[in-house]
Amino acid sequence: MSALTKMWVSFIGIGLMAGSAFLIMFARHKTKGWIRTVLSIVSFVMLLFGILYGFVSII
Rank of each mutant, 00 (worst) to 15 (best):
56 V>N: 11
42 V>R: 01
19 G>V: 15
30 K>R: 01
32 K>G: 13
59 I>P: 06
59 I>W: 13
42 V>Q: 02
7 M>T: 07
14 I>L: 12
59 I>V: 08
46 M>A: 08
37 T>L: 10
22 F>A: 11
43 S>P: 14
14 I>D: 02
48 L>W: 14
24 I>T: 09
39 L>K: 00
36 R>H: 13
46 M>S: 09
39 L>M: 01
57 S>G: 08
53 Y>K: 08
40 S>M: 10
14 I>S: 10
6 K>Q: 15
18 A>T: 12
14 I>M: 10
4 L>P: 11
48 L>P: 15
17 M>K: 09
2 S>C: 14
57 S>P: 03
48 L>I: 06
8 W>G: 02
42 V>I: 07
27 A>I: 00
8 W>A: 03
21 A>N: 10
53 Y>W: 15
26 F>A: 00
57 S>H: 02
19 G>C: 07
39 L>I: 03
38 V>E: 00
4 L>W: 12
43 S>L: 12
46 M>Q: 03
2 S>F: 13
6 K>A: 09
21 A>F: 10
20 S>P: 05
11 F>K: 08
31 T>F: 02
28 R>P: 06
36 R>Y: 12
29 H>A: 08
25 M>K: 05
9 V>H: 06
39 L>H: 00
18 A>I: 06
26 F>W: 01
37 T>N: 13
58 I>E: 01
44 F>D: 04
43 S>A: 06
16 L>C: 15
7 M>S: 04
31 T>I: 04
37 T>R: 06
58 I>T: 11
21 A>S: 14
1 M>W: 11
30 K>G: 00
20 S>C: 13
47 L>P: 11
24 I>V: 15
27 A>F: 00
12 I>C: 05
17 M>H: 09
47 L>M: 15
41 I>G: 11
25 M>E: 03
59 I>A: 13
7 M>N: 07
39 L>D: 00
25 M>G: 05
4 L>S: 05
42 V>D: 01
35 I>L: 09
17 M>E: 12
56 V>S: 07
13 G>M: 07
34 W>L: 04
51 I>W: 04
42 V>Y: 02
31 T>S: 03
2 S>G: 07
46 M>K: 03
38 V>W: 01
43 S>N: 10
1 M>L: 09
9 V>A: 09
35 I>F: 09
12 I>A: 08
10 S>A: 14
45 V>K: 08
11 F>G: 04
8 W>K: 03
4 L>G: 14
5 T>S: 03
16 L>E: 05
10 S>C: 06
22 F>V: 14
35 I>Q: 12
19 G>A: 12
2 S>D: 10
47 L>E: 10
6 K>V: 13
5 T>M: 03
16 L>Y: 14
41 I>K: 12
32 K>W: 10
35 I>A: 05
10 S>G: 05
31 T>Q: 02
37 T>G: 08
52 L>A: 09
9 V>G: 11
45 V>Q: 04
28 R>L: 12
18 A>P: 08
47 L>V: 14
27 A>Y: 00
39 L>E: 00
31 T>L: 02
2 S>P: 15
16 L>K: 12
47 L>K: 09
10 S>N: 05
35 I>N: 11
58 I>W: 06
10 S>I: 08
17 M>V: 11
41 I>N: 11
53 Y>E: 03
54 G>T: 06
6 K>S: 13
